[in-house]
Amino acid sequence: MPTKIEKDVITGTDTTGHEWDGIRELNTPLPKWWVYVYLATVVWGLGMFVLYPSIPLGTTYFHGLLGYSSRADAMAGVQEMRAMHGKQMQQIGALSFAEIQKNHDLMEVALTAGRITFAENCQPCHGPNGEGRIGYPALDTDVWRWGGTLDAIQQTVTHGIRSGDPETRTSQMPSFGADGVLKPDHIQQVADYVMTLYGKAKPGVDTAAGQKIFAENCAACHGDKGQGNRDVGAPPLASRVHLYGDARETVVAQVTKPRHGVMPNWNQRLTPATIKAVALYVHSLGGGE
């Protein structure tokens, strides 16, 4: 209860009139400048209320006198960026690979666009850095089943592999086991031989029979030394990099009833310029061919 407002002797300031156990409190009001700044912020706040979107009105809201919208702002920024990228992507679409590679800035755009497109579309199968996984080829090595030049990569990405596109890349290995072309014993023998091609054969195993079977059945496509043949889509076997792995049972399984991977034809979903960017990016992963 304020009782008696009196002047404090020492400071000359009024007291608040409150007293607790003989302790009185000086009335020290907020500094004037503080109060004015506070009032100014209130006025400022009211101004913002009137100028900018503020009051919710059910399904709509008061738009403010300036008609500002952060969403429209953001969309304008997106449009601007699209326009900018559109020009550069157009250039990428129009120029040859060699010309793009010579243009440092354009190359940077292409690699960035390629990287983003790759992450959105290719990464689920080929891995985040193109390292591949079983059944999905690695893109960072020097083994290219269908060619590793920029043009070859562009072709593969555009039309896919066994995709149903009229220009798709395709190949088919016979089911030597399932169709009864080779007996299970022979398949075991040929597997023993194939493993010698990449230095994984167990020592002491006789591979003469397997070699003979290989020469008669496999060499036509895979080459007499297992070096592969791109024209018929036969992968190299004398290689340390294998699509399905290099274990004996894998070889046996593949000869018995081969798996045939499919890659979509991206011309359905990506523009030619974007595919070019992807090709440049994929090529940069391992240097291509």
Binding site: N129, E131, D140, T141, V143, P236, S239, R240, V241
Partner: peptide, 18 residues
């Protein structure tokens, strides 16, 4: 050094780092 993959094996068994 590239984080992933740490190394890549090439056709002839050589190693490659990025």
């Amino acid at each position: 050094h590239d984080r992933a993959p740490l190394f890549v094996r090439l056709e002839n068994g050589d190693l490659r780092n990025g």
